[in-house]
């Protein structure tokens, strides 16, 4: 295990212990989520990645960001999660996480950074990671139905569930519950739009990426 990761593993309980008295759960959870993302980035930097793979990752992120900005007038309809899932399946779990986090981060250069950025990064990253892991273990298949079901469930529960945690800022359990209840229709809309996007583009896009992989190795 690289040294920085050990330090992070030590920092996690330390921060929680030091700050738990202050009752500022928002700050604690924000710090913990940043600690959780750092090891992925560090591992990625340690690995000497092939230049072609690096450029492919950049292309997938650019497609995801361009897709989100193409539908900018319809805030809940965005193909970002769909593209992240496809790249998680085709390029592996680690690249999936990277593509998820970075596309959330970069698209907020256009849509505006805010306290929600970190939650979005973690949520999309985990979806990409999960897609890669489940595909590797043959739980997720390269079929339309399997991918669509996975996309719908993860968008609603993981993306919605994590991003709504931003309401922790109010530090009040009743407001947070109200926030979750109010956002159910929005999350449902987001999940169904992800399903539609996956239904339309998943198989053709996977075929295209596979073609590139066999053509250039």
């Amino acid at each position: 295990m690289p040294k920085p990761i050990k330090i992070i593993l030590l920092l996690m309980p330390l921060t929680t212990l030091l700050l738990v008295d202050s009752n500022n759960y928002y700050f604690i959870s924000l710090l913990l989520i940043i600690y959780a993302m750092l090891p992925f980035f560090i591992i990625y930097e340690k690995r000497k990645v092939q230049l072609r793979e690096l450029v492919m990752i950049a292309v997938m992120i650019a497609i995801a960001v361009a897709g989100r900005s193409a539908f900018f007038m319809l805030p809940q309809i965005k193909p970002m999660v769909a593209i992240v899932i496809i790249s998680g399946i085709c390029l592996g779990a680690q690249s999936g996480f990277l593509i998820g986090t970075l596309s959330a981060f970069i698209s907020n250069f256009i849509f505006g950074q805010g306290p929600w950025t970190i939650w979005q990064m973690f949520a999309t990253g985990s979806i990409g990671f999960l897609a890669g892991i489940l595909y590797y273990n043959n739980i997720l298949m390269k079929t339309k139905t399997s991918i669509c079901i996975f996309g719908g469930i993860t968008t609603f529960f993981i993306y919605g569930g994590i991003v709504n945690l931003n309401s922790l800022m109010t530090n009040n359990i009743a407001t947070i519950i109200a926030y979750y209840v109010y956002s159910i229709p929005f999350d449902l809309l987001h999940a169904s739009s992800t399903i539609v996007f996956l239904y339309l583009i998943a198989i053709p896009m996977i075929e295209k990426i596979e073609r590139i992989k066999t053509k250039y190795g």
């Binding site: 690096l54 292309v59 361009a66 250069f109």
Partner: peptide, 13 residues
């Protein structure tokens, strides 16, 4: 490497 990816994406969009 991450910075390279980000700067490439900012060009690609």
């Amino acid at each position: 490497q991450l910075s390279l990816i980000i700067s490439m994406v900012l060009r690609l969009i």
